[in-house]
């Protein structure tokens, strides 16, 4: 999986941390840190986090291969 969080949008509601505690964490009161590249096994947890976010700040897609100079 590949994950990115729009931290302009994030308001530290921390719902992602309940949904996927191994892949999202708060440092301090509001500083969200997250795993940008969780394994495929985490897919369910990550998708729950995406849907749980009240401000819809999380984007996640499965891995796609891109090698240097390659199409797609």
């Amino acid at each position: 999986m590949k994950v990115v969080v729009d931290l302009n949008r994030c308001q530290a509601y921390a719902q992602c941390i309940y949904a996927a505690p191994d892949h999202f964490a708060l440092h301090g009161k509001e500083a969200l840190v997250y795993d940008p590249s969780p394994g495929e096994a985490a897919r369910g947890a990550i998708e729950r986090a995406v849907h749980a976010c009240p401000v819809r700040a999380i984007t996640a897609y499965p891995d796609t291969d891109t090698k240097v100079g390659e199409t797609r």
């Binding site: 590949k2 994950v3 990115v4 840190v33 795993d35 100079g69």
Partner: peptide, 23 residues
Amino acid sequence: GLFSTDTTLPRHPDLAADFRLGT
């Protein structure tokens, strides 16, 4: 060194783009 250091941005599976990388 927290989590993965691979910050590749998520890409839609149907993006169908031709990436010319390293050039």
